[in-house]
Each structure stands twice: as structure tokens, then as C-alpha cells.
């Protein structure tokens, strides 16, 4: 029952929220929260549940974004076909690189995924004949069966629906034998292997799933903004995504959503600090990690349980 309660609350928030959104800027922030949350829910499977760090997921986001941009603008593909092809291609790429990369642990895994992200970034910058290089490229508006998503309101509902679907998918994985296997890997990989779990296979799978999530959101973001630059796959974006997982709470799907919401809104709220925003931002992150090391949602949930 517990899993439906969370979902129902979130669905209710999504339905009621437009009452508080006064203009397209407010919608824009809400849409970005939704998209980031979708991606972080996927990334959380890898980082939070399986305990494998990735500092290169913005690379997959970028690949999805550019797949959509290039296939729709240069080859006239319908956006949905471009998006699905991008997801498939990213899935294959992630699958191929996952085995060698996920054999590494700790710092080495961090380095390898970091390198992967940087390689993708360099390719996007240097293949300027395809990607427009550093100056970026235009992306057409998203349309499906002749119906196009032209304004923020339409995007809001699509993003909300996609987020809910992503959460259902993620929860299903978490609550399945796969999810238990992943948590076993997180606890102790050696112990998991002794218990007969093919740890490599599960790690590869979850890596591919999280990469495909990233690619899908990349495609959506590209169509939504209408213009992309290789910065979407930069190292800083990867860090931002990992931070969302950590602040919200590792191994907590709704924590990931909250993390995405907080880290998307903070820069907007802090923008008045003119130049000091990075300091305030850093301070908030530090305090979170020091006082809420498990992230917001798990810590608060544990407090509530104790007081019961």
C-alpha cells in the first residue's frame, strides 16, 4: 500500500500545483523540476540502490538530446521516433561500456564514468558538422500525430505524466527480485556473489536503465527548450545530477524527486544574492551532507518512525 500512497500524493501535487503557477516562468521551473526528477529517479536506481557512482550521466542526457535534435532537424524524423531511437542507441552504448566500467569500484569507477562523460562532451563539441559545435543547434518543437507541444502548460502535463510513469517503473524495479539483488550489491558485493547473485549482470542492467532514463529526458529537454549546446553533457551537469540524488536521499525514489525540486529551485531563489549565490548554495549542500548524511527524505522518515 505504501508505494501507492506516495504515488497518489505526488499525483495530487501535480494536479493541484497549477493553481499556484501564475505565469510561464513558474511553469518553466515546474517543468524543469519534473524533467530533472525523472532523470534523477533513474540515476537513483544506480547510485542509491546499487551503490554505483556515475559522474558521466550528463553524457547520456546529451546523447539523447542530440539524437532528437539531429534526427528531427536533419532527417525529418518524427520527434517520438527520434526520441525512441536515441533511447535505444544510448541503451546499446551503455550496455557495451557498462561491463568493463562496472568492474571498477570506488574512485576508479568514478574516474571511468567521469571519463566517459567527458568523451561524449568532446565528441559533441568537435563534431561541429553535426552538432553545431560549441554554438549549439536549434531543435524543433515536439509534436506527435500532428499535435504539437507549443506552450509551457502542455509541457507541464506531459512532464508530470512522464514523471509518474518513471516512478512506477522505478518502484517496480526496486520492489522486484532485481531490486533486492541491487540492494545486496550495495550492501556487500562479495556477500551478494556468495549468495549466488550475478552481480555484474544486475549492475549492467541498472546502468543501462538509468542511461535510458537520462536519454529520454535529454530528448524532452531538447524539444522543450528548442536549443541545445554541448554544455548539457558537461561534467558540471553530471555533478548537479549526483547532488540531486545525494541531497534528496540515496535509495529513496521520492527523495530523488525532492532533491531534484530543491536543486532546481535553489538557483532561482538564490539569484538575488548576486555573486554570493554559489557560496550560499555550497553552504546548504555542506550542511545537508553533515547533518543529514543519508539525504532529506530517508533522514526525515527515520525521525518520524522513531517518534511514532
Amino acid at each position: 500500500m505504501d508505494r501507492f500512497r506516495g504515488l497518489a500524493v505526488l499525483a495530487l501535487i501535480i494536479v493541484v500545483l497549477p493553481l499556484a503557477l501564475r505565469n510561464s516562468y513558474h511553469y518553466d521551473v515546474a517543468i524543469r523540476i519534473g524533467m530533472n526528477a525523472t532523470m534523477v529517479v533513474g540515476l537513483n536506481l544506480l547510485i542509491g540502490y546499487a551503490g554505483q557512482i556515475s559522474l558521466g550521466h550528463a553524457g547520456f542526457f546529451g546523447l539523447g538530446a542530440y539524437a532528437s535534435a539531429i534526427l528531427t532537424s536533419r532527417y525529418g524524423w518524427p520527434p517520438i521516433a527520434a526520441m525512441i531511437s536515441g533511447m535505444a542507441a544510448v541503451g546499446v552504448i551503455a550496455f557495451v561500456v557498462a561491463r568493463p566500467i562496472l568492474r571498477l569500484r570506488g574512485h576508479y569507477l568514478a574516474m571511468a564514468t567521469l571519463g566517459l562523460g567527458i568523451i561524449i562532451y568532446m565528441v559533441l563539441v568537435n563534431e561541429s558538422g553535426w552538432t553545431g559545435g560549441n554554438d549549439g543547434m536549434n531543435v524543433k518543437a515536439f509534436s506527435i500525430f500532428g499535435f504539437s507541444l507549443a506552450n509551457e502548460r502542455a509541457w507541464y502535463w506531459v512532464t508530470g505524466a512522464v514523471l509518474l510513469v518513471a516512478i512506477v517503473l522505478a518502484r517496480n524495479i526496486v520492489d522486484s527480485p532485481v531490486g533486492r539483488a541491487l540492494r545486496a550489491v550495495h550492501g556487500s558485493e562479495t556477500a551478494a556473489q556468495v549468495a549466488g547473485i550475478d552481480t555484474a549482470r544486475y549492475k549492467v542492467r541498472v546502468f543501462v536503465v538509468s542511461a535510458v532514463f537520462a536519454s529520454a529526458v535529454g530528448s524532452m529537454m531538447a524539444h522543450y527548450v528548442g536549443f541545445i549546446t554541448p554544455q548539457v553533457s558537461s561534467f558540471f551537469h553530471s555533478i548537479e545530477l549526483v547532488t540531486m540524488v545525494v541531497v534528496g536521499g540515496m535509495a529513496s525514489t521520492y527523495g530523488a524527486v525532492l532533491g531534484a525540486a530543491i536543486l532546481t529551485m535553489l538557483p532561482q531563489l538564490l539569484s538575488r544574492f548576486e555573486g554570493y549565490e554559489m557560496i550560499v548554495f555550497g553552504l546548504i549542500l555542506m550542511l545537508t551532507v553533515i547533518f543529514l548524511p543519508r539525504g532529506l527524505v530517508p533522514t526525515i522518515a527515520a525521525r518520524l518512525r522513531k517518534s511514532d
Partner: peptide, 28 residues
């Protein structure tokens, strides 16, 4: 970040209700 510029310009137009825009450092 081009993505953030996209959000901020909406904020300038919708929230701050500016009369004119001067800016946009990079082409992206």
C-alpha cells in the same frame, strides 16, 4: 548554460516585467 538562460529570460519577462533585454553572453 543555455538551458538556464532560457529559464531566466522567462523570469525577466514574466516576473520582473522588464521593458527591454540587453544580454546573452554566448551564442548558445
Amino acid at each position: 548554460s543555455a538551458g538556464k538562460a532560457n529559464t531566466f529570460v522567462k523570469r525577466l519577462i514574466e516576473e520582473d516585467k522588464v521593458d527591454i533585454l540587453v544580454g546573452g553572453t554566448t551564442t548558445g
